[in-house]
Structures are given as C-alpha cells and as structure tokens.
C-alpha cells in the first residue's frame, strides 16, 4: 500500500521551473495572494489571480491533481453563492432583482458571493500549486532558514508524516473490530476505534521520542542540514516582484475603498435567478449524494 496516496494533497514530483522555485519565494507568493485577496473586492483582480494560479498548473504539470484538489470548491462555491444571493453578507440596502417562491433574489448578493468565492478560489489554487510542487522537506528546511524554531518545525513535519500512519491504523483497528462481529457503519464504526488508536499513538510517540533522543535530537550546538535548498537570483527576482505587485495592489485597493465594483457591475435579474437555482440544486445534489454514499456503506 502506498502511504503517499492516503493524502489528498501531496507533492507531485516533477522537474518543472515551478518545482525549482525556492520554497521561500513560493511562501511569499501564497501570503501575497491571501493578503491581496482579502484587501480587495474587485472581482476582476480576484478572478485574474485565480486564473493566473490555474495557468501555473500546466506549467508545473499538475493540472489533473489540481483539478481533483479543487473539487472541494463545488460544495463551497454552490452553497456560498446560493446563500449570498438570498442573504447578502453586506449592509442593507440590498437591490432585489427577482423573487422565487418565498425568497427574494438580490443582485448585489451575487456580487459579494462572487467576491467571497474569488478569495477562496484564488488562495486555494495558489496554495495547491505550491504544495504540489514543493517537497515538504525543502519547505521545512526553508522555514528553518527563516529562523522558525527547530522543534516547532519538526512538529509540523512530524504531523504531516503521522496523518497517513494514523489513517492506516484506524483502518486496521476497524477491520479487527469488524472481524470480531462489531456492527455499524460510518461514524458509529469509527468511534469505538478511537481509544485503541489513541493508546497506540501515545505508545508510538513515546517510542519515537526515545528513538529521537537516542540519535541526539535536541543537542545543543550547531545543527547542519542534509537537504540543501538553493536560492538563485531568479528566486529573489520572482519573490521581490511578486511582493511588490501584491503590496502595491493591496494598498491601492484599500485606498479605493476595497475597490468594490458592486454598483458598476449590474447582473440581469433572470441571470441571478438561474444562477441561484443552479447553485442551490448543485449544493442539494452534493448533500444527497454524500448521504446516499454514507448510508450505502
């Protein structure tokens, strides 16, 4: 069994230009993306950022896994849009454009829904591209270079390691309990395996701490690193240019009142209505399929 497959989002090995970019540069870009996304309400900027992040995927050869990872946006996006259209998360007054049954459909609700979604899409896509093109060890080595405390760094890396281990452990314990006649499915079946998994985890961690200490973990004095992360001039340039763009746009956007175009872009009533129906139907569909799948198991 391949342990790596257990994580939905993991490094996709490759040799592309983006794979070779220094992790710190990538961190700068992800932070820049998030800062800019949350300091603007301009949907052109937001979806431009999302599109740019998406276009990086074919360059890095991670399009397919990226799309797979981005599937999480379907329930998030559909529920967000459907709810925002009937109940915008901004101050009144709202502009009603249509009505459906007992619901009033608001045009600016759609706009703010798209803004919220755009922030999530842009940040998620760039973060996925980063995670899929960066070896975790390189990432942690870089974080250590940024003076992140060694123990904290180690803890984070360790957690990443332990997720698939515990997934497998839960699987083994559940199988063992089922083979002894335990009934139940879904969450009801997972619950009784928690105690053995926790006990196992404590034992594992104690053994690990002894093993680590026996290999000099926590020694005083200088530490060296086996993983060498190079920073080339191009990494500096990409990082500085990115930081300049993100900081600049963020400042401009904040000075222009978050650059909201809610009153410039007016959606036709029928368009908003249909989008609401599609979003609500998609979200309902996701819930129904999940429930059916859960009960079938």
């Amino acid at each position: 069994m391949s342990m790596q497959a257990a994580l939905p989002v993991a490094l996709i090995p490759g040799n592309s230009f983006i794979h070779k970019v220094n992790p710190i540069t990538k961190i700068v870009w992800v932070i820049g993306y998030i800062v800019l996304a949350f300091s603007t309400q301009n949907i052109y900027i937001l979806y431009g950022m999302a599109l740019f992040a998406f276009l990086l995927a074919p360059l890095a050869g991670v399009t397919k896994p990226l799309l797979k990872g981005a599937l999480i946006l379907v329930p998030i996006g559909s529920s967000l849009l459907a709810l925002q259209i009937i109940a915008p998360a901004v101050e009144q007054p709202w502009t009603p454009v249509a009505s459906l049954g007992g619901f009033t459909i608001y045009g600016d609700g759609l706009y703010y829904g798209l803004v919220l979604l755009g922030r999530i899409v842009a940040s998620l896509l760039i973060a996925l591209v980063m995670v899929m093109t960066t070896h975790p060890s390189d990432l942690f080595t870089s974080l250590a270079k940024l003076k992140m405390p060694y123990t904290l760094n180690f803890m984070l890396a360790m957690t990443l390691q332990l997720i698939p281990v515990f997934q497998r452990e839960v699987g083994i314990i559940m199988s063992a309990q089922k083979s002894r006649g335990m009934k139940g499915s879904g969450f009801a079946a997972v619950l009784p395996s928690f105690v053995p998994v926790f006990v196992g985890a404590i034992e594992r961690v104690q053994q690990l701490s002894i093993s680590l200490e026996s290999r000099g973990f926590g020694s005083d004095g200088m530490k060296t690193s086996f993983r060498q992360v190079r920073s080339r001039p191009s990494d500096w340039i990409i990082g500085i240019v990115g930081a300049a763009i993100f900081i600049g746009l963020s400042i401009i956007s904040i000075m222009k009142g978050l650059w909201s175009l809610a009153h410039v872009i007016v959606f036709p009533g029928t368009f908003v209505l249909w989008l609401f129906i599609i979003a609500a139907a998609t979200f309902a569909g996701v819930i129904i399929v999940t429930l059916i799948y859960a009960f079938k198991k």
Partner: peptide, 14 residues
C-alpha cells in the same frame, strides 16, 4: 533524511 537526522543533530557538515 532518516539517516541524516543524527548527523544533523551532531552538526556534521553537509
């Protein structure tokens, strides 16, 4: 890296 861990802690050069 598993093998490197002890060496890193001992400060052995790269």
């Amino acid at each position: 890296e598993e093998v490197a861990l002890g060496l890193e802690n001992a400060g052995i050069p790269y």
